[in-house]
């Protein structure tokens, strides 16, 4: 069974995000970029499936700028077999990304698609569900465990208030939550080897995908800053403040 795993190039997890003075966007110039952490978990899971003999081939795909080749090379160094970049300088929205990935599914026919549950830049949490809809597949979102059998995959989902286990018919689209696994670091020899692994570059037009905007960002502003309050010196003072000043207990 082929496994398709997707990665997105995003601002690094540790970068302090700043809004541009003209309120057009956040400042993305000269900031460190990295693979979206949830995508990293998805890649790790795909590689584990290959190591366990469940996956025959791991294909990693990204839709984004030319520089996203870096993130694809990282995935190849972690252990993916080959990569596809659908290159565009436009900021594609979730639906267009899902349509692009649906085209890749059409030609590659993966038995499973593994994705991150959300990207830490736009925080949309949409693309996996949209892809599942477009290819008519079952979806397992926010998963923390998975077991593949002959025709099904059983997934444990992190839902509000607990865990839900579902059985999904293959092919299925799964989106990784934080605790599915802990991604490995690529070793130097593997990073060298990854440079020689195939990386195919296409455009949305090559795949017959029309790039369409569903939304327009009017402005981006920083959130209201919370002001630091006061330090209290004792538990008694804290209780007094909460009772008599804040009146919340």
């Amino acid at each position: 069974m082929k496994v398709l795993v997707t990665v997105k190039r995003v601002i690094d997890y540790n970068v302090k995000v700043r809004v541009l003075a003209d309120h057009s966007d956040v400042d993305l110039k000269n900031v460190k970029m990295a693979m979206n952490p949830f995508c990293e978990i998805a890649v790790e899971q795909a590689i584990r499936l290959k190591e366990a003999g469940v996956a025959s081939e791991v294909i990693v795909a990204s839709v984004g700028p030319s520089a996203a080749q870096e993130q694809l090379r990282t995935a190849l160094a972690m252990g993916a077999d080959r990569a596809i970049l659908v290159e565009t300088d436009e900021k594609l929205e979730s639906l267009t990304v899902a349509k692009t990935l649906a085209k890749i599914c059409e030609s590659e026919q993966p038995g499973l698609v593994l994705m991150g549950k959300q990207s830490i830049d736009t925080d949309n949490n949409q693309t996996g569900q949209m892809l599942a809809a477009l290819i008519g597949a079952a979806q397992g979102t926010f998963i923390s465990e998975m077991r593949v059998s002959a025709e099904e995959v059983e997934v444990t989902r992190e839902v509000d208030g607990g865990l839900q286990t579902l059985a999904l018919r293959l092919p299925a689209v799964l989106t990784a939550d934080l605790r599915l696994n802990e991604p490995r670091y690529a070793k130097l020899p593997d990073i060298m080897k990854a440079k020689k692994k195939p990386l195919e570059i296409k455009t949305p037009a090559d795949l017959g995908v029309e790039v369409k905007a569903n939304t327009r960002v009017l402005k981006v502003v920083p959130p209201a800053e919370r002001q630091a309050g006061i330090k209290v010196s004792s538990v008694a003072e804290l209780v007094d403040k909460l009772k008599n000043e804040a009146k919340v207990i």
Binding site: V19, E93, S94, L95, V217, V220, P223
Partner: peptide, 29 residues
């Protein structure tokens, strides 16, 4: 498309939603 996790409604077509872990608020049409 979908407009995710709106925190304010500016008009029936314009919404505010947090991005980048709430470090920015985007007005989206």
């Amino acid at each position: 498309g979908q407009v995710s996790e709106i925190v304010a409604i500016e008009s029936p077509t314009q919404f505010v939603r947090p991005v980048y872990a709430g470090n920015a608020l985007a007005s989206v049409e």
